[in-house]
């Protein structure tokens, strides 16, 4: 037996936890000091490792694990809750109270806008009556909303400009109020009510369908205000 063979056999016996040497190996180490020393070292290790004792973990290990497990569990629950909330339409993040408050605020803004519009149109009608001028408002091209540079215009043309600016200002204000309503989405129906806007399927469909009809309202409102002001002027003109 060579030293190489001996080492392989020695390894096998220790891998099988059978450190007692068979006769063949004993015969080899009887005349090979190097292999004998290796065998003795391995045997020493085998014995010493059997004595390897680790002090037990602290008593708090189980408590610590269970505590962390609870924390993790609670975290998962709260995360899953917030995730399911997040999957709903953004409008549902508002509490019902917040939604109604926003609706009230928007309604108030509308009332104020109508009031201002009414006052502007009254003043314009008054000024118009003073000048007795007949101007076709509908024929005047739409102007961008700009501050009136001269607060006391004279003449029919200037009066028409003033009337037009006032009407635009009113329409812009009203449109702004509508946009506010649109932005807060307070008109979005809850998930358990029929979709008033014809959307189908998921809540995403609801919010999508809502954003479409609200967007052009500014223009529609402007046209409605135009025709309303026209009627006011006409009625006031006919009464004078």
């Amino acid at each position: 037996m060579t030293c190489f063979d001996f080492e392989n056999r020695l390894q096998e016996s220790f891998d099988l936890r059978q450190p007692e040497l068979p006769d063949e190996l004993c015969a080899h180490i009887s005349h090979c000091p190097a292999c004998r020393e290796m065998q003795e070292r391995f045997q020493q290790l085998h014995v010493a490792v059997a004595d390897w004792q680790v002090q037990p973990p602290t008593a708090e290990l189980a408590d610590a694990v269970l505590r962390r497990l609870r924390t993790e569990h609670n975290l998962v629950i709260s995360t899953s809750r917030s995730t399911s909330d997040g999957q709903r339409s953004p409008s549902h993040r508002h509490s019902p109270l917040t939604g109604w408050m926003a609706l009230l605020a928007s309604a108030l803004a509308l009332v104020i806008a109508v009031g201002i519009g009414w006052r502007v149109s009254s003043n314009v009608s008054f000024a118009k009556r003073q000048t007795s001028s007949q101007t076709q408002i509908a024929n005047i091209p739409v102007k961008r909303l700009e501050p009136v540079s001269d607060p006391t215009p004279t003449g029919d043309r200037q009066l028409d400009v003033l009337v037009h600016d006032a009407r635009d200002a009113y329409a812009a204000l009203a449109s702004q109020a509508w946009q506010q309503v649109s932005a807060t989405n307070v008109l979005l129906p809850p998930t358990d009510t029929p979709n008033l806007f014809g959307g189908e399927g998921s809540t995403d469909g609801v919010s999508e369908s809502l954003s479409r009809p609200l967007a052009p309202l500014g223009k529609e409102l402007r046209e409605a205000v135009d025709s309303w002001l026209q009627q006011v002027f006409n009625s006031q003109d006919s009464s004078t």
Partner: peptide
């Protein structure tokens, strides 16, 4: 595993020597 175990034994034996 056998190779690693054997090398571990040998290295530790050498250390102890």
């Amino acid at each position: 595993v056998k190779t690693w175990l054997h090398r571990a034994r040998k290295e530790m034996a050498e250390y102890l020597r």
